[in-house]
Amino acid sequence: MTRWLFAPVPKARIAAFRTLVYLFVPLDLVLFSAWIRGHGNLPGSLYRPLVVGRLLHLPTPTHLIVDAIYYTLIPLSLLAATGRAHRLLGWAVFALYFEWMIIAMSYGKVDHDRYALLVALAVLPTAGRARHGDGIPTEAGGFALRATQIAVICTYFLAAIAKLRYGGLAWLTGATLTRSFIRRGTLPARWLLRIPGFTTVSQVCIVGFELLSPIVFFVKPRTRYLIVAGFYLFHLLTFCLITISFIPHQIAMAGFLPLEKVTPITWLRRRRAGRNGRTAPAEVTTTNPATSGEA
């Protein structure tokens, strides 16, 4: 079990994942969760903190608190994306984004699409130093990715458990998707409503896919990538049909992918070195096939 949890990955993968996650945070604040800023203007009586908020005695959100988090988190995330001071900046970003989520989810609605992203932010400070293009394997980085992957799959698997726990088998045969298609469906969704039994079959398939999602850990890398591509396709279809976005979850799901093969930073280094008339430093690629297991 320990060997699986700490399966080493190239440091370049950690560097790429770290950059992706930390660059997404300011994008999330500005575009996808900008509505949270409005909670600072709400009456304090409407604030019903989550259990963790009560345990930590977090303050009731005010306009000052919400704006302070917003304007502090954006520059800190951009700095953290560089990989410098990864522990100090990483823990700061996690703490602020964690409070941002507490503020978001303490007014009656709790989303589950940011759970895996929160886990990623929590474990990235422990992943150690990592540089783009560095192929040296790291167990600490492997654990960070594995923890994120487990969080991604728990999001699916526990969603299915919740559906069956609160909706029972009626969730499979009821009108859940039909109601969603009618209430917020796009034109393709309304067209699909004309197909008899489509929504019922889709509900069975959704729960089945969520319950079987842990299989991604027991297949070969190539098959794993195909399954993860299926996850992305599922979320693309969800957005196209009912405009529900799981972008934070999909960012965390990139922890399954060989991100070290996408090397824009290395390309920029070489291009800049070429302009200065000198040879770019050789990238370390000492990955040991025997120890660089897929996380």
Rank of each mutant, 00 (worst) to 15 (best):
L177H: 01
L212P: 03
G255P: 01
A189T: 08
L257K: 04
P221N: 09
T200E: 11
F234L: 14
Q250F: 01
R179W: 06
G185S: 13
V228F: 15
R165W: 06
I244C: 06
L187H: 12
R224D: 08
P248I: 01
F218A: 14
L169Y: 11
L169F: 12
I227S: 00
F256M: 04
I251Y: 06
S180F: 11
I195T: 15
E260Q: 09
R184L: 06
L193E: 14
V201D: 02
L236W: 11
A189F: 10
P221V: 15
T186I: 07
I247S: 10
G208E: 08
T263Q: 08
G208H: 14
I182Q: 05
Y166N: 09
Q250P: 00
T243V: 08
L236F: 14
C205Q: 15
L193A: 12
F256T: 00
F231N: 01
F181I: 07
V262F: 11
I247H: 03
A254V: 00
L259W: 02
I215P: 03
G255V: 00
S213M: 13
W171G: 06
P196A: 04
V201E: 02
L237C: 13
P258F: 06
T200R: 11
T263P: 00
W191I: 15
A229Y: 02
F218H: 12
R183H: 05
K261A: 08
Y232V: 05
Y225T: 10
H235S: 00
A254D: 00
L257E: 07
G174M: 07
S245M: 01
A252N: 05
Q250A: 04
F231E: 02
A175N: 08
T186P: 03
S202D: 09
T243D: 12
F198P: 13
A170F: 10
M253N: 07
L241G: 04
K261Q: 10
F209Y: 09
E260N: 04
T186V: 06
R224P: 08
T186R: 05
P248N: 06
F209G: 03
F209C: 05
C205W: 14
H249K: 01
L226N: 11
P258N: 07
L212Y: 13
R224S: 13
P214T: 09
F198E: 13
F239Y: 13
A170Q: 11
V262G: 01
T176C: 01
F218Y: 12
F234W: 11
K261E: 02
V207Q: 14
R224W: 04
L233N: 01
I247P: 00
L193H: 14
T238K: 07
F181Q: 08
K261L: 12
M253T: 10
A170G: 02
G208M: 13
R190Y: 15
A189G: 09
R190D: 14
L241H: 10
S202L: 14
L211A: 12
A229D: 02
A229K: 03
C240E: 09
M253Y: 04
V228K: 11
G208N: 11
G185W: 12
I244V: 14
L212V: 15
F217K: 01
